[in-house]
Amino acid sequence: MIGISGVSKSYGQTVVIDDVSLTLPKGGLTSIIGPNGAGKSTLMSMIARLLPIDRGTVMVDGLDVALTAGDALAKRLSILRQDNHLAARLTVSDLVSFGRYPYSKGRLTDEDRGHIERALTYLGLDELKHRFLDELSGGQRQRAFVAMVLAQDTDYMLFDEPLNNLDIRHAVAMMKLLRDAAKDLGKTVVVVLHDINFASCYSDHIVVMRRGRLFRQGVPEEIIREEILIETYETDFKVRDMDGNRIATFY
């Protein structure tokens, strides 16, 4: 369980996150949606201690992220941000191996190697594992980063817009993979998403942010509703039931 209580963040006079209190349930896939500038990514970065928290606390399984040692937290919670630019020229398998850094500190054990192999296979990267990241397409590279997070094998995995750079086929495959990781491996997956329909079809729980505040949260049926989406995005929406999913259109 991730407990967020009274969290705020501001840059100078601009308040980006305004007193957010929220509990993210353990297990399943939680999506955070909302318009640009709603504070989704900022909130996620604070949960993963990438950004200092101005006020309030974030607790992961009872550990305060601001006070817990970085390497201890790295075994419980991982995050993949968007726009990952590496100065280091690494192969796919090198990168995925670094997912084991919190455990091995660079000296890989057989258990580490098992995790690395499974993560590579899970993401369909066996053929590409000796290729350098700068020789891959954007989608393949994204999969390599996700494999690294998977190898890190934490109970909580946070992804900031994991569908960036992915075409439709790979985006669907990625969402299925994240959902399966939650279901089969018992992980808690939290994703920031721009695509409402992906959130609607794949989430167990949806959090809506708006203007730096928590706006709504609940199961997809409670959230993917015309009146809520219209108010969130200030755009006209139609919501239809299709094959048991709620699909929003806004074109």
Partner: peptide, 20 residues
């Protein structure tokens, strides 16, 4: 050496992997 490789991946990557 491994720490410097991780540092080459940037501050966010390093923090995620528990490196100061």
């Amino acid at each position: 050496a491994d720490r410097f490789t991780v540092a080459g991946m940037g501050e966010e990557f390093s923090t995620n992997l528990g490196l100061n």
